[in-house]
């Protein structure tokens, strides 16, 4: 009797299901525990991948709890691609839907930072422009220019002090018992060379950077950022982009 791959995978993902007839031991008896090797391998290998992928979430909830969450996640969202290094796009929304985690409301945003760091790590290389190139432009030329942003650049916006929280979880950066000041934080993830860095952005900074990424002119992105946050701190935002090596080119009005 044949065991097709639909029957095999259904039984593999559900330990409560019987091992399909037609899978046997050397004596021709039902494979029983032998089939569990595949059940275990799939769960274990994907769980390990998620532990690697979401270090801050794993630390925040504890590894034992995270393994249990991973077991639920991988059954609900099996990978859609063999590129396991990018597995877990659905994790932030998945965590947001877990009632028992609602007291840790910022957990999905920790997951977003973990995802962004991983995407940044594997993104294409790009040479950063000389910081002097920006200063060399007249204000008029700068306003009309478009700014090339490195492929490894990501932005995470959060209603939580997410950068402070992420550092607290990953680096133990806080004194015991210190709670970060309650405020929204935007984070720039950039990759000066091979290791992604996290840099805090001032209010409106995320709007500015995503505007540039979308191909808006400097003036257009600046308008949008000022609209989003009166008193938008342009200098601090440019400083963050330059220190992260995130600006790769300046495209004048008449170029490209």
């Amino acid at each position: 009797m044949g065991v097709d791959q639909t029957a095999f995978t259904a039984a593999m993902l559900d330990p409560g299901m019987k091992v399909p007839a037609g899978l046997t031991d050397p004596e021709g008896r039902n494979a029983g525990k032998r089939f569990n090797v595949y059940r275990n391998n799939v769960v274990l290998s994907l769980t390990e991948a998620l532990i690697t992928a979401f270090p801050s979430v794993c630390r925040r909830v504890g590894e034992g709890h995270f393994r249990a969450l991973a077991g639920q996640f991988l059954r609900r969202h099996p990978p859609k691609s063999p590129l396991i290094m990018f597995y877990g796009d659905e994790m932030p929304d998945f965590l947001a839907g877990i009632d028992s985690l609602s007291s840790v409301g910022y957990l999905p945003d920790l997951a977003r930072i973990d995802l962004a760091r991983r995407q940044s790590y594997h993104a294409a290389d790009a040479r950063a422009t000389d910081p002097g190139a920006l200063q060399a432009l007249t204000t008029e030329a700068l306003m009309e220019a478009r700014i090339g942003i490195a492929p490894a650049t990501r932005v995470v916006s959060s209603p939580w002090p997410i950068l402070s929280l992420w550092r607290q979880v990953m680096e133990g950066a806080e004194e015991a018992g210190t709670v970060p000041e309650a405020r929204a934080e935007d984070v720039l993830i950039a990759r000066p060379e091979h290791d992604p860095v996290l840099i805090g952005l001032p209010p409106g900074g995320a709007v500015f950077v995503t505007g540039l990424q979308a191909g808006q002119s400097f003036a257009g992105a600046l308008d949008a950022a000022t609209g989003a946050a009166a008193g938008f701190d342009l200098a601090a935002t440019l400083g963050a982009l330059l220190s992260g090596g995130a600006i790769t080119k300046i495209i004048g009005k008449d170029e490209g």
Binding site: T9, P79, P82
Partner: peptide, 13 residues
């Protein structure tokens, strides 16, 4: 095999 019905199982089946 490792992929079925557009899902990848990260194991050699």
């Amino acid at each position: 095999w490792s992929t079925h019905d557009s899902h990848f199982f990260n194991d050699l089946l």
